[in-house]
Design a protein around this nucleic acid. Structure first.
Lengths: 352, 352
DNA sequence: ATGAAAGCGCTAACAT
DNA sequence: ATGTTAGCGCTTTCAT
């Protein structure tokens, strides 16, 4: 067993209370006792046990993070932002993945709650009707959504929920507007499964907005399984037939866009000469490619950073409120700015 | 305060021990008591508190993970592999980043040790002489290195350390041999800072091996700050001058390779016509580009998976050993296979 | 300035 | 099959 505060106390010839005091407010211990204790700590290689501390304190200075996957750079960067900020604020991060499976969302959160994390940051498939979020709410655990965007004031009582994201709908609209400005009229949206991502739905709305604003006929979105276009036969047919083929593709995320470009090449089509492609996310590698992947950039690392700070603020506000008696929960809805990155993958359509 | 085992016991009219038993070995509780308790648990929304359990048990079923950054997909994938395996084995993951700063390595590990993680998975700058690893060893906390590769039997007593990686030297050698086979003779290696990555050094040795085996004159590596080639003036000069310019570039990682390709384009050079580029890591997006990024693929997610399983095995072996009295530490050195991915970015050099 | 003691939630002897 | 109790490491009254 590792040395505990007790061994330190024994060795230093003081009570455990004094050791604890030295650790927490060093001012309240006499210089010579402090000296003795420090020596004992050194000698034993003592390290305070957070488990004991947490049990006593009822909080863990740990936040839980739940994201769909780390295979998508977007979430990796977000987690990166969370971790950096957490370290700065002296919080630890417990991390889990859901693989886009809603049932795993609740399991993940259950586990985190078991660990008594002080709060949770999560990206869920659908923030609208979500049992996991309801659970969090029931348990009065502060949480912040990332990427998910809440529909403002739906039917019935929509509880206020904190979130950090871009305005997905407006961002998508800007992206499509960019394509329209380039001269495209037949624009097809390619999307990840709507039921795995409420963002994708918002982005489709943004597509509709832009098309309608320009008086163009919107097309139904083609939903594809994560990055596997080959399975989407309707899509393949559309691409193979010049009459059906759109002049531009708007993809709900960059990975999808890059996969699409690869597939188009396999079909003998050239980007942007034969068809333009625009993505969403603005992952860094997109800017390294040739042509540069046109995309709408969301500040993923910043999203993580803001989410963590928002969460910690809520945690500490909550703790203060618990101490004071009141419990005013206020949910901040952070909408971070997006930027349209123009890129060689989106150009004016060929004259036909 | 959240409901504890005590409230459940009260409500069910049994002792806390009985509740605990139901939770741990349900067989030892009568059907009707179980029924009562379950109802109470349900009613109170009770969830076992791991903190209490951990304090008592002396272990946390949590592993710590320390990687340089999540901005490099390689580490994100590795973490993904770790998380998936951890979830399968019912372990939780506490995660930290070092930003390639050795001093942050120890801080990170200190923090994890404070949380009493049962073991640690880490990628350090230099696994050779590393204070953090020494600390872990002193504390007898099982740990597994990822990506880092230990020099076998160095001078003095080299403690056996577990690691999971590819054979960086052989892999780099294979990559360069591929370039040589294509006809290249003047091959320059571009590398991340050697002092931030012992892998980079191993890969440089691999480069030397391949060059020497082919009777070619190796060039000193050009070390660049993470992905910023623009600052490397010697490199810029070399590229600008056709007489100095190598016919192929071997980069110590894919991000670097992709940055290099971008820069070469800016210089008006075309890949692979004017110069070939080969990377290392085999990140998935490399295969989506055109030309496909030639690279040597290391199975990052698998590295994470194997690391976690190795670690858990060590943890549980350790626990068993502690119970039995003996304490045989055996360090497994997993060398996973790499694969050379040929790609359009590496082709035969132009006749000159 | 320091110590004694209670208790956070839980499990594991040890009774019964 | 169930209850009683001690104790994991720590902080925090309450005394002194």
């Amino acid at each position: 067993m590792r040395p505990s505060i007790k061994q330190v106390a024994n060795l230093a010839g003081v009570s455990i209370a004094t050791v604890s005091r030295l650790l927490n407010k060093p001012g309240s211990v006499s210089a010579e006792t402090a000296e003795k204790i420090h020596r004992s700590i050194e000698q034993l290689g003592f390290r305070p046990n957070f488990t004991g501390r947490n049990l006593r304190a009822g909080n863990s200075r740990t936040v839980g993070v739940v994201v769909p996957t780390l295979s998508n750079t977007v979430f990796a960067q977000c987690l990166q932002g969370i971790e950096l900020a957490a370290r700065e604020l002296d919080y630890s991060v417990m991390f889990t993945t859901t693989e886009y499976l809603p049932e795993d969302e609740s399991a993940a959160v259950e586990l985190l709650l078991g660990h008594r994390v002080d709060g949770v940051i999560l990206t869920v498939a659908d923030a609208g009707a979500n049992a996991t979020l309801d659970l969090l709410e029931r348990e009065k655990i502060p949480f912040v959504l990332t990427y998910n965007q809440l529909a403002l004031g739906g039917q019935g009582h929509v509880p206020p929920r904190a979130s950090v994201s871009v305005d997905n709908r407006a961002a998508a609209c800007d992206a499509v507007a960019h394509l329209i400005r380039l001269g495209h009229r037949r624009i097809q949206m390619l999307s990840g499964r709507f039921n795995a991502s409420d963002r994708a739905i918002q982005r489709y709305y943004g597509y509709l907005d832009a098309m309608q604003a320009a008086g163009l006929a919107p097309l139904p979105a083609i939903e594809v399984e994560r990055h596997t276009l080959t399975a989407a036969t309707d899509y393949q047919q559309m691409m193979a037939d010049p009459a059906l083929r759109p002049t531009a593709l708007f993809c709900s995320n960059d990975l999808l866009a890059m996969s699409a470009m690869r597939d188009l090449r396999a079909l003998g089509l050239r980007v942007p000469r034969d068809i333009s492609v625009m993505g969403f996310d603005g992952i860094p590698v997109g800017a390294l490619m040739e042509p540069v992947l046109a995309s709408v950039v969301q500040p993923s690392e910043r999203i993580g950073d803001v989410a963590l700070r928002t969460l910690v603020a809520a945690i500490e506000r909550g703790a203060a409120a618990a101490a004071a008696g009141a419990a005013p929960v206020e949910a901040a809805r952070h909408v971070l700015p997006h930027v349209v990155r123009e890129g060689g993958s989106a150009a004016a359509p060929a004259q036909s």
